[in-house]
Simulated scan of single mutants.
Amino acid sequence: MNAYKLFVERVGLVGITNILISLSSLIFIPIITKSFSTAEYGIWAQVLTTIALLPNIANLGLPYTMVRFLSAEHDKVKFKESFYPMITVTTIFTLIICGLCVLFAKPIAASLFNGNLKILYITVFISFFACVNL
C-alpha cells in the first residue's frame, strides 16, 4: 500500500506541475506582448524556438533510445555501459552544434536576431544546458 501511495503522490505532483506550467504561459504572454515592441517580441519568440529546436537536433534521439532500451535493465554495470557512451556522444555533439553556432555567429545573428550577437551567445549558452538537461 505504501508503494501505491508514493506512486499517487508522484503522479499528482507531476499533474500539478504541468497545470502550473500551462497557467504560467497564459499569464506570461500578455505581459510580454504588452511590454515588448513587435520586433523585440519577434526576437524573444525566435530565441524560444531556437532553444526548443537545438536540443532535439543535438541529442540525436538518444534520450528516447535510452528510455526504450534501458528502462527494463536492472544490472547497474550494463546500465552504466550504455548510459555513459550515450551521454558522452550527446555532450560532444552538443558542443559541436554550439561551436558551429559561435563560429557562424554573424550570419546566424543577422538572419535570426536582427544582428544582435549578445542574444545569439545567450541563446547558445542556454541551448547547451537545455541539451545536457534533455
Results as ranks from 00 to 15, higher is better:
Gly12Gln: 04
Thr94Leu: 06
Val89Gln: 08
Leu53Gly: 02
Lys118His: 12
Ile96Glu: 10
Leu26Gln: 00
Thr38Gln: 06
Ala52Ile: 10
Gly115Gln: 04
Thr49Cys: 10
Leu100Arg: 08
Ile16Arg: 09
Thr90Pro: 05
Leu26Ala: 12
Pro63Ser: 03
Tyr41Leu: 15
Leu54Ala: 10
Val77Gln: 06
Thr49Ile: 13
Asn18His: 10
Leu134His: 11
Gly12Pro: 04
Ile92His: 08
Arg10Asn: 07
Ala110Val: 09
Phe28Trp: 09
Ile16Tyr: 08
Leu120Cys: 00
Leu20Val: 04
Tyr121Asp: 03
Ala130His: 04
Ser71Tyr: 09
Ile32Ser: 09
Ala130Cys: 11
Phe129Thr: 09
Phe129Tyr: 07
Phe28Lys: 02
Ile29Asp: 02
Ile32Gly: 06
Thr88Ile: 13
Ala109Val: 01
Ser35Val: 15
Ser37Cys: 05
Ser82Arg: 13
Leu112Cys: 00
Ser25His: 11
Ala105Tyr: 01
Phe104Lys: 07
Asn133His: 14
Ala39Ile: 12
Tyr64Gly: 13
Tyr84Phe: 15
Tyr121Cys: 02
Phe113His: 00
Thr91Cys: 13
Ile126Ser: 08
Ala3Cys: 07
Trp44Arg: 06
Ile21Glu: 06
Ile122Arg: 05
Asn59Val: 07
Leu95Met: 10
Ile97Cys: 10
Ser24Phe: 07
Val8Thr: 13
Ile108Asn: 02
Ile51Ala: 04
Phe79Trp: 05
Ser22Phe: 07
Ala52Gly: 14
Gly61Ile: 04
Tyr64Ser: 14
Val14Lys: 09
Pro55Lys: 03
Asn2Leu: 13
Pro85Glu: 08
Arg68Asp: 12
Ser25Tyr: 13
Leu117Asn: 05
Ala52Ser: 10
Ile96Phe: 15
Asn116Glu: 14
Val11Glu: 08
Pro63Arg: 01
Val77Ser: 08
Asn133Phe: 15
Pro85Leu: 04
Phe93Asn: 13
Ile57Ala: 00
Asn56Pro: 05
Ala109Cys: 00
Thr50Ile: 04
Leu26Tyr: 11
Met1Ile: 12
Phe93Ala: 01
Cys101Ser: 10
Leu103Lys: 11
Pro30Val: 02
Val8Trp: 12
Ile32Trp: 07
Tyr121Met: 08
Leu53Ser: 06
Ala130Arg: 09
Leu54Tyr: 09
Val89Glu: 09
Glu9Met: 14
Ser25Phe: 15
Ile119Leu: 03
Phe125Gln: 07
Val77Lys: 11
Thr88Phe: 15
Val132Cys: 08
Leu134Gly: 14
Thr88Lys: 08
Ile87Ala: 14
Pro85Thr: 01
Gly15Lys: 06
Lys5Ser: 14
Glu9Arg: 13
Asn133Cys: 11
Leu134Gln: 11
Ala52Trp: 10
Lys80Cys: 11
Ile96His: 09
Thr123Tyr: 01
Ile21Val: 12
Thr38Val: 15
Thr49His: 07
Val67Arg: 07
Ile29Asn: 05
Phe104Val: 01
Thr50His: 04
Met86Asp: 06
Cys101Tyr: 13
Thr38Asp: 09
Leu120Arg: 01
Leu6Arg: 12
Ser22Gln: 06
Lys34Ser: 14
Trp44Leu: 15
Ile43Leu: 12
Glu9Ile: 15
Phe28Gly: 01
Leu117Trp: 02
Val89Lys: 08
Val11His: 09
Phe129Cys: 06
Ile31Gln: 03
Asn133Glu: 12
Ile119Val: 15
Asn116Leu: 12
Phe83Trp: 08
Asp75Leu: 01
Ala58His: 01
Asn116Trp: 04
Asn114Trp: 10
Ala109Asn: 01
Ile51Arg: 03
Leu62Trp: 03
